[in-house]
Amino acid sequence: MDIDGSIKRIIYDGYERLILVEDSNRNEYWLHFLQYEEYLENKEESNILTVGQKVLMRVYLNLVNDFKVYNTHPWPAEGIIQPITQSPHSIVSGIVRDRLDDCTLVCSVGGIGELLVSFESEVSIEVGSRIRVSGELWADIN
């Protein structure tokens, strides 16, 4: 899933970044990523990222170790929920569209688009299955 939006908040910890991004539809997402170009601590300000900056990011769900497959109705509405404040922890519901390998799926997530879902271990989930997974939203900034 690609997000074209702007940064609303940034939390720094060494090379790690936690950012709040707002997309063009006014959806907000907390995203985690690593930025090896700049090490920051003790409330230092970044020379690379700033609040208000426009960004284009490839977003994926990582560190997935909890999931449920729904074979019968009712199943959860497709989408992304972030139940913990200032956290990339996410609960995602969608339909499996492709299986890249034993640990990686591509899911359709409602009107949001397709999201790469990376599990911590091998899973046996069929293409076409409706699933609900928990993990962290990670980003790669272009």
Rank of each mutant, 00 (worst) to 15 (best):
R97D: 14
L105A: 01
I81M: 09
L137Q: 03
R58D: 14
Y60E: 14
E44T: 06
E122H: 14
L31K: 00
E126Q: 11
V51F: 06
W75V: 08
D13V: 09
L31E: 00
I48Q: 02
H73E: 15
Q86S: 15
D4F: 13
L116Q: 10
R132W: 09
Y29F: 14
E44C: 04
I141P: 03
E41D: 13
V123K: 01
V64M: 02
D2I: 14
L56F: 09
E41A: 08
N47L: 12
I3W: 03
S87L: 07
I91F: 02
H73C: 14
I7F: 04
R58F: 14
I48Y: 04
E78F: 10
I7N: 01
P74S: 00
D4M: 13
G5T: 04
H89W: 15
N27F: 08
T104F: 06
V127M: 07
L63M: 12
I95V: 15
R17Y: 03
G113K: 03
E45M: 07
G113N: 04
F119C: 03
P76V: 04
L137V: 05
I19M: 05
L105K: 00
V133R: 00
E41Y: 09
I81F: 11
M1P: 13
N71Q: 11
E78N: 09
E45I: 08
G110Q: 04
F67E: 03
L56A: 12
S93M: 05
W138T: 09
G113C: 06
T50H: 13
I125M: 02
E45G: 06
Y39R: 02
I95A: 05
I3E: 03
S108M: 13
I141N: 00
C107W: 04
D66H: 12
L31Q: 00
Y12F: 15
G14K: 01
S108A: 14
I112N: 04
D101M: 08
D66R: 15
D4P: 10
K43L: 15
F33K: 00
N42G: 13
N65R: 08
I91R: 01
G113A: 06
A139L: 04
Y60K: 11
T72M: 12
D23T: 04
R97C: 15
N27W: 07
I84D: 07
I19H: 00
Y15N: 06
P76A: 03
